[in-house]
């Protein structure tokens, strides 16, 4: 495989993607945009209006007496931001594994500024409102750590085309309730 052949294949793939986007946008209804993040093997989506910024992960200053999920505080754009480990909050139990790596997702919420530590912010997903499914219930109750999940976007529901896998939609109010109350 020569260099020119590979370059040509990349350009062709890109052209096809651009062409498909323009075609889909014409007959689309109401949509919701979500910022999709990866935590371990799981993907979670946040409403884009609730996000303030994305920044590269870096070491945090630990706060004495803080809850286990609070990784620490960092300074960003002149303000102090509290960093909460999303994996810990969702009970995935991978706290400390990705310290100094990954991305911080700063949220746009009432109260003190808060950022969530995730493995990677994958991209922007634009999902039709009708494609969003209700969260699965186990024995009539929410699953473990699922009390903050408000819905589930199945794979292929992204009309933008940049997020191929399905993801769980997080309700930030419910997620952050223990920390902001």
């Amino acid at each position: 495989m020569s260099e020119t052949e590979r370059h040509r294949a990349l350009l062709d793939q890109r052209s096809a993607a651009l062409a498909a986007r323009g075609l889909a946008e014409r007959h689309l209804g109401a949509r919701a945009d979500f910022l999709v993040c990866a935590v371990g093997a799981e993907h979670y989506g946040f409403p884009i209006a609730a996000t303030a910024a994305v920044m590269p992960g870096r070491p945090c200053t630990a706060v004495p007496g803080a809850p286990a999920a609070l990784r620490g505080i960092v300074a960003h754009a002149g303000i102090i931001v509290s960093v909460i480990d999303l994996a810990h909050v969702l009970g995935l139990g991978r706290n400390g594994e990705t310290v100094g790596q990954g991305h911080f997702l700063r949220l746009r919420v009432d109260g003190p500024p808060v950022a969530l530590a995730v493995d990677r912010v994958i991209g922007l997903a634009s999902v039709e409102a009708g494609a969003i499914e209700a969260p699965p219930l186990v024995d009539g109750r929410d699953g473990l750590g699922a009390e903050a999940v408000s819905g589930y976007a199945p794979a292929g529901s992204d009309r933008g085309g940049s997020v191929s896998d399905g993801f769980a939609i997080i309700d930030l109010q419910r997620l952050l309730r223990p920390f902001l109350s």
């Binding site: 884009i48 994305v54 922007l124």
Partner: peptide, 17 residues
């Protein structure tokens, strides 16, 4: 490319805002 990725995400957030 990684920086550009973050930059594009922030740009998308700003655009949504």
């Amino acid at each position: 490319s990684e920086r550009t990725h973050l930059l594009s995400l922030n740009a998308a957030i700003e655009a949504a805002a």
